[in-house]
Amino acid sequence: MALSTHTTTTGFLLPSIHSAPPFFTQQPNPTTQSIASEQWIRLILSYARHRRLFTLRVEDAETAGNDWDEVLRNERINRRVLPSYLSAIIASMAAKNVAAYEPPKQNRSALLYWRLPEEWAEVLHEWAISTGQLNTILTFYDITDPPIESPLTNIPLPLLRKAITILAKTNRAQLIGVADGEGVRFFAGSK
């Protein structure tokens, strides 16, 4: 039996380890498990990037029929990631700072950092410059749902807020209250 890569219906190339049955079991040997979780983290982040998914929940492993089916299940070998294992993977992602529990103080759902908040901050700033929106007040809605699709379309608010906070530290953005919630103003700043 050869373990090979597989291209999913959404055009994602699954690595060959995804067709290995034991990949779906939490490994009792810590060294082996650290290898396995490294592989899972890489897989989850690249899939999230591929489909622009921002959230991973333990529930995603409980019931089929969600965005994560292609990764958390492998029907061809009849294996799936059990919720307890997914919970452990999410925990190690949070420990490695490639994900953060969102909302905080629970461990069922996490925000995935396939781009780190610092990287999102740069993307955000570049977008503001390239669309000529410096020095004007933008609502969060203007950013998450712009008339022309941008790299920031549908970015979750907690992540957006983090990115703005990072920009604020270098005086490139300022959070402000507007009539119906929050807004932000970007400045050219110096890099």
Binding site: A20, P21, P22, F23, F24, T25, Q27, P28, N29, T31, T32, A36, N78, R79, R80
Partner: peptide, 9 residues
Amino acid sequence: GLCWLDDQD
């Protein structure tokens, strides 16, 4: 660490 476990056999 020479083998992996599969508990869904």
